[in-house]
Amino acid sequence: MPTDIQRDEVRRLSAAGAQLVEVLPAAEYEEEHLPGAVNVPLKHLSAETTAPLRRDRPTIVYCHDFQ
């Protein structure tokens, strides 16, 4: 079950090697995103598009806000 986290935990997990995934459309990602985040838009989230990501590493997903 996914775990909801806040900013401080994002920083801690990222520093420990978690992968960050922004799921907004590419145009929004290209404007600005969190350092080191990769972009996999929600509409394109599939086994194929997530293949470059590690399944055995903690993964943090985010969008713009509480949507």
Binding site: D4, Q6, R7, E9, V23, L42, L45, I60, Y62, C63
Partner: peptide, 24 residues
């Protein structure tokens, strides 16, 4: 949006998924 994405990642075999609820 990130809630659905988090669940989808889990269904795709990601073992440890977190959702940054307040987002960017």
């Amino acid at each position: 949006m990130s809630a659905r994405a988090a669940w989808r990642l889990e269904s795709l075999g990601f073992g440890e998924v977190y959702r940054y609820t307040a987002g960017k």
